[in-house]
Design a protein around this nucleic acid. Structure first.
Lengths: 270, 270
DNA sequence: CGATTGCAGATTGTTGACAATCTACACCCG
DNA sequence: CGGGTGTAGATTGTCAACAATCTGCAATCG
């Protein structure tokens, strides 16, 4: 039923030209900077309604506005974003291929729920990629690269020190994302991000807000040290082990939070 | 002006309804097996028009019926498959996300062309994954698994021996795909297949039919030997090196085919 | 009283039509 | 004769309506 900010104030939502300011979560045209002529052209050329809907839904899913397992109603989404159902359906197809939603014929689309087994698999794939990342970076490490990474680690430690869970999680994601980005391999980056997106889906599902926060700044420090020292194999192993250790921490946290709030479960499989 | 390198012969693929056997290239209902009641139900439930169109287009692209760079016309594809444009557009969105086509707003969709640089990147990612595959299989190798792999290698050698390029390429793809499948990690498998699909796209683009065939059965034999012996690190390294060597062979082949028979290249003004 | 069957409402699947944009060709002007 | 411009055709983007399917409730029957 799409139980977020309800678009109950439907009324004239269909008449779109005049009431543009009324609807709240519309697909906002991201053209805040004023005098950018050529830039705006490139943006309009690349942005179609389906693409914008896709981006917006992806943002909502990853932000947790749309909890895993919730149903996405075509008409509701279309109404909410001020478009018709066509572009919404196209966005759904893209999101399914990217692994964020699941389509059931004649039943609807649902935000995907990642099982423990699948999260395990993803962690393994991610570990394999990250090992490569570690080796690659250890080969091409420069002083400024190392300096940037150390700054990242420090930020994480600061956040962990003051118990700021959100800041720590964010910094952690950024640190690892930056590592992959620094390899300069764009394909590796998109592959990695796709996996991490699904992993985030899983994290939100289970340990929605388990108080415990698995800190692993020591491992991060070790990773950067190996990279800085140019120890190729060791850097790769450090990252591999770190990811696999994160997997274990996930298991621990999950086992602890098992008796947590009773979620309405999902639909019954048949 | 972004001139499209599409083949000059009338926009490539889509619009040729008459030559085909009647309108029979429709989305074929894939119900070849007869009296399977429950099976047919599951099939109907999972198959929607967009899904079938997507599968069919994917098949055509990977089979080479739709050469890289060619334009896909919505109406023509819809007509060819006997559906309306809606499902075709949804299939295009999914194919874009899977990396097989490229969407240009108001211009159309094109079968993607992989550049050498991008193929290089993909090879690297694939090598990282395959190293993990090698290690994993070396840990869990059983006699029957080894026997199956040896049969694969033999099939490849047979094909290579009689110069059957197509058979060799197919067997090679199957061998590597089977390796990944045997790890039992479904996520790894889909990640791997996505990369290989794009790689095939590249191969078709450049060495369309370069006579030379890079044979590497020796490496394959070595890989299986390491797995059979349970040499974890060595098996991983063998697969990593094999993929990276394939990358080099690709470069060689490409460089060799460069001065080859007249590619249209850049057309000069008359 | 419980289970089954039929019906009504809602949601998804698909289609055809309309509007916006791009491409190509002919025309006109210097 | 070359370059720029305007228009016609084709193609894509978006939408609203129709058809098929599913879900839930209620009435009926054993």
């Amino acid at each position: 039923m799409l139980k977020n900010p309800a678009p109950a104030h439907g009324g004239g939502a269909a008449a779109r030209p005049p009431a543009r300011s009324a609807a709240s979560t519309r697909v906002r045209t991201p053209a805040p900077s004023p005098g950018n002529g050529a830039d705006a052209i490139a943006l309009v050329q690349s942005s179609s309604l389906p693409t914008l809907v896709q981006k917006e839904l992806e943002r909502m899913i990853l932000a947790g506005d749309l909890p895993a397992g919730s149903k996405l109603n075509e008409a509701a989404v279309a109404d909410l974003l001020g478009v018709s159902r066509g572009p919404v359906r196209e966005a759904f197809r893209a999101l399914e291929e990217s692994g964020l939603v699941r389509l059931e014929k004649n039943r609807g689309v649902f935000v995907r729920q990642i099982s423990v087994d699948e999260a395990d698999e993803i962690y393994e794939v991610r570990a394999a990629l990250d090992e490569f990342v570690g080796r690659r970076l250890a080969q091409s490490a420069t002083p400024e690269l190392v300096r940037e990474l150390r700054a990242h680690v420090e930020r994480m430690e600061k956040a962990a020190g003051r118990g700021d869970v959100d800041a720590y999680v964010t910094a952690n994601l950024e640190f690892h994302d930056r590592l992959v980005e620094l390899t300069g391999n764009a394909k590796l980056l998109v592959t990695y991000r796709r996996l991490v997106n699904e992993l985030n889906l899983y994290r939100r599902t289970t340990l929605a807000r388990s108080g415990t926060l698995p800190i692993s700044t020591g491992e991060h420090r070790d990773i950067v040290d190996r990279i800085a020292a140019g120890q190729v194999a060791a850097a790769g192993r450090a990252l591999y082990d770190h990811v696999m250790a994160s997997r274990e921490r996930m298991h621990k946290t999950r086992a602890g939070a098992r008796a947590a709030p009773g979620r309405p479960a999902a639909r019954k499989p048949r």
